[in-house]
Design a protein around this nucleic acid. Structure first.
Length: 617
RNA sequence: GGUCUUGUAGUUCAACGGAUAGAAUAAGCGUUUCCUAAACGCUUGAUACGGGUUCGAUUCCCGUCGAGACUACCA
């Protein structure tokens, strides 16, 4: 795939000073405690005020009752009164039970809005001068991508974007598992069934299938034939376990793997041909979902590397050799088991390869941190890998992180690729795009009349993909999630297209404003805001912190939730107040600047999820 | 068996140890002479069970029960 692109050339933003209401308020409260209760200062924790109460920030007084020797309500009253008197940004307060709810002055919110509007880099944090490598996708070349891969790809892509916004230099890598028994199964089946009666071999062109789908078909064919042989053997009295090991097809496929390892030209040629078809198919899918990598590694090039590390481990006494020649590590002291790192015949296992590629990736990029986006069924594997790296004394060993995510279940149960009960990625994307197109028939009501066929196609692609990405990313990655096909193509409620719609809506208003020659330039001068306007500015001001939080937790779901909240609040604002019909120029100005800022922030937040937003829909 | 993860409305998801546990969806009812109704509003419904720590527990700890993964000289 693509060449190595190192992100050395980055803009260094001049950080504009942004009015940070929360920090100011925390400082003011701290000062209040210092003055009112000398010698009792402590950390101040603020939380957003719940909707049913007046105010934007809440200070919880309970933790201070013992220390300050006062009742919660009294502490709240005392501090609240002090703030209204002495803080430049506090306009009012109320105390409910022990909760001090603080209202911020409209003038302060207007200042915040002006800061955000003037700062085009809002939400992009200062460069940290640290690099992070994110490895994700990492497919096998014996079958096409499925739903589970989509969660992986979207997560890895989004986390990469979020870390970039956090100021890290991110390198995206993909390790293609292009060798091993699995690909040999497809190869063998292709040899057996891939030629028609007239002797022509099937190709992607002749079959009209994408390369990855074609090879996947043969993988399934192999499994069917193999299972058939096992059944026959069991029927004739062979125990099942023995049948699985000695079925002729299994022996043949193992022979093929040996031929591959010996470099047999014919086997290698077939292998190259089938893999090339698969890569062509993958490339189409990656392009379609907007995912790319800075560097792609192939296991066929790296699988031998780990053996050097195994040798090193034996020298250092980290590994030990058993009588049969196999090499192990004993991790019982770390609460793990003994683990094989090299077979008795000297060939590598999965762990051997990962030792090698981990080292190689570090040598290539010297990243300060390495992240693997891999499903949680491999938690144990990564625990072992990291433990080995620590014991080998690798300097980077404590900067390795397994971003472990839960499986995607179907309402009908678990997906099994060998049995064909998977949701194919390409099919799924097509279905959501089609659903977006169908929905437009009764929802768009002529809004798309000016669109060409190509523009419509691009829009439906954007909406369908947006629905799918949002659906998979809004859930906490760590959690196992259920995929409901009907819900995933829904465009209403807490979905990607709902948020995309708000962006289009805002753009429409701004176009009309431009036609009316309403000028957006200059600072907003309003002194009063409506409650919902205030709420929007408050939400906007939270954006940078959300970027930080989602980066720290490696969780795009924080951004997804934020984008939805912002979009929903905008719709309420839109419904409650008129914008272009507003005759008061000062109010009109606030609402346009606010709409613009919300539109931009939605675009940025969705961008972090890898979702594009339309100008019109 | 051992290790790890997980259990919240009918369903799919939220909730730095904080207030009356939020959304969406499904069902029903309303809102358009006016900026995009792919929208907005209203109504119904949940923390598996039992202890403990705490001013306060969906959240932390222990136990029971349920779900899942891993525990391969497969990758």
């Amino acid at each position: 795939m693509g060449p190595v692109i190192r992100s050395t050339y980055r803009l260094h933003f001049v950080l504009l000073w942004l009015m940070d209401i929360q920090s100011i308020l925390e400082t003011d409260i701290l000062q209040a405690i210092n003055e009112l209760y000398p010698g009792q200062s402590d950390d101040v924790q603020l939380s957003p005020t719940k909707k049913e109460f007046e105010g934007q920030y809440t200070f919880v007084t309970f933790p201070y009752t013992k220390k300050l020797r006062q009742a919660p309500a009294q502490i709240g009253q005392t501090i609240g009164a002090w703030l209204v008197e002495n803080s430049a940004i506090v306009s009012a307060f109320n105390v409910v039970q022990g909760f001090l709810n603080i209202s911020i002055a409209d003038s302060a919110w207007v200042e915040v809005l002006n800061d955000i509007a003037a700062n085009s880099a809002f939400g992009t944090l200062a460069q940290k001068g640290e690099s992070v490598m994110v490895e994700f996708s990492s497919p096998n070349t014996n079958k096409p991508l499925h739903l589970g891969h989509l969660r992986n790809n979207f997560l890895g892509d989004s986390v990469s974007r979020i870390l970039t916004a956090n100021g890290y230099d991110v390198v995206k890598t993909c390790i293609v598992n292009d060798r091993g028994i699995h690909i040999c199964k497809s190869m063998l089946a292709y040899q057996m069934f891939g030629t028609d009666a007239s002797g022509r071999a099937e190709t992607p062109e002749s079959s009209g299938m994408k390369g990855d789908h074609l090879i996947g078909k043969y993988y399934v064919l192999f499994d069917k034939a193999y299972k058939g042989q096992i059944e026959d053997m069991v029927a004739l009295g062979t125990p099942k376990e023995e049948a699985e090991k000695t079925a002729p097809l299994m022996l043949e496929v193992q022979q093929m793997l040996r031929l591959w390892e010996q470099g047999d030209p014919e086997t290698k040629a077939l292998w190259s041909q089938l893999n090339a078809w698969v890569y062509e198919g993958f490339a189409v899918t990656y392009k379609n979902i907007g995912v790319s990598f800075d560097k792609t590694y192939y296991e066929s090039n790296t699988y031998l590397l780990g053996k050097e590390i195994v040798e090193e481990g034996i020298q250092k006494g980290v590994f030990f050799r058993k009588d049969d020649g196999s090499v192990w590590i004993d991790l019982t002291e770390e609460g793990l088991d003994q683990k094989l790192v090299m077979r008795s015949d000297g060939t590598s296992v999965y762990m051997t390869q990962d030792l090698g590629t981990t080292e190689l990736k570090f040598q290539d990029f010297q990243s300060d941190r390495q992240i693997w986006v891999v499903g949680n069924e491999q938690d144990y594997h990564f625990n072992v890998l990291f433990a080995i790296m620590r014991q080998l004394g690798r300097s980077y060993a404590n900067k390795l992180y397994h971003l472990s995510y839960g499986m995607v279940d179907l309402p009908t149960g678990k997906m099994k690729s060998r049995e064909g009960t998977v949701v194919d990625a390409d099919d799924l994307i097509q279905e959501t795009v089609d659903a977006a197109s169908t929905a437009a028939d009764d929802a768009a009501k002529g809004k798309l009349d000016g669109f060409s066929q190509d523009e419509k196609k691009a829009l439906f692609q954007m909406l369908g993909l947006g629905a799918l990405k949002y659906y998979l990313l809004k859930v906490d990655p760590q959690k196992r999630m259920q995929f409901n096909p009907a819900e995933s193509v829904d465009l209403h409620g807490n979905t990607g297209p709902y948020i995309q719609y708000v962006h289009a809506r805002i753009k429409s208003i701004l176009r009309k404003a431009a036609e009316m020659n309403v000028i957006l330039d200059g600072a907003v001068t309003a002194t009063q805001l409506d409650e919902v306007e205030q709420q929007l500015v408050f939400l906007l001001s939270q954006y940078p912190q959300r970027v930080i939080d989602s980066g720290a937790a490696y969780s795009p779901s924080y951004i997804a939730q934020y984008a939805y909240e912002l979009a929903k609040t905008f719709n309420q604002f839109y419904d409650k107040l008129s914008i272009l019909k507003e005759m008061d120029m000062v109010k009109l100005h606030v609402r346009l600047v606010l709409s613009n800022a919300v539109g931009e922030t939605i675009r940025k937040a969705m961008g972090l999820l890898g979702i594009e937003v339309p100008e019109k829909m």
